[in-house]
Design a protein around this nucleic acid. Sequence first.
DNA 1: TCCCAGGTCCTAC
DNA 2: GTAGGACCTGGG
Length: 306
Amino acid sequence: MSYRTKAVFDPSFTFQSGQAFRWARQFGEQSGWIGVAQGKLIAVRKNCFELLSSVDESGNFEKFVRQYFSLDDSLQKIHTTFPRNRYLESALLQYSGLRLLRQDPFECLISFVCSINKNIPAIKACIEQMARKFGERIPAKLGGEFFAFPTPEKLGKATKSDLMSCGVGFRWKYIKFIASKVHEGELDLRILNGESYSEGRRFLISKLSGLTYGVGPKVCDCSLLYSYHKLEAFPIDVWIARCLKQHFLKPMFSDKQEPWTGSLTPASYERLSKRAREYFGKYAGYAQLYLYAKMRSEATRSRSTA
DNA sequence: TCCCAGGTCCTAC
DNA sequence: GTAGGACCTGGG
């Protein structure tokens, strides 16, 4: 089963943007991307999506693809809402076709808990190991084995040593806590679909709700943006903080408001992300995605030429 | 061998 | 409210 879109879409930019961790480049004749999303094994080549296999009877594949890849978001329209800024405009141009995904909320939340104090290759590796150890195998004729992301039940019942063997380190207790809460029904992630961004934060940040553990403002914003499509969410990590300091200090902090020193304490995170939502507008999350992509590629380039 | 990574938690002031 | 340290582990 396959689906072709006419929407502007770039798989390389999208899968390398740090929002999802289970997509890998395929080489050889079938060059493109392959990945697992919500129990489906999917191949992506340019604007064509092919369902290779699935753990269940999957419903309408076209509907799934349009939703998961946000193909109905009008990038052009979104871009016109942004403030004029040279750095942002060059990012939008350079990464044309980069789209936000709508990932499974549980998978996304656990993935970003895994991201705490880890680099991207290490995040991918530990998620893959968790899927391999706890996830359902997806029948596939391709070379290699593929696994769905584990269910809340599996991760909630996993032991410390089982989780540690996946390379998650000290995050095991966060993962187990959250997965148990979801499995037992205390933490109902579906609720957030109908909630606002600020309600979502109240619900997900550990200190505010007590329903999660290991979820601070950054992980929460990633969850709200990358799985719930709350487009005003603006996750601030070290890269985005650096980006704002280098390229947006003047436009964002030129008025009477208190200046920002560049540090990221809980309080300054709140101030800064509020400021970013005001400055970039209701699609701030899309701006964040493009800025992150540009910052990372520049850093990679300067490292390799250093 | 050493430093650091898409942060969060905990403790002490 | 905030500063400082600890935290598993693998990649570079």
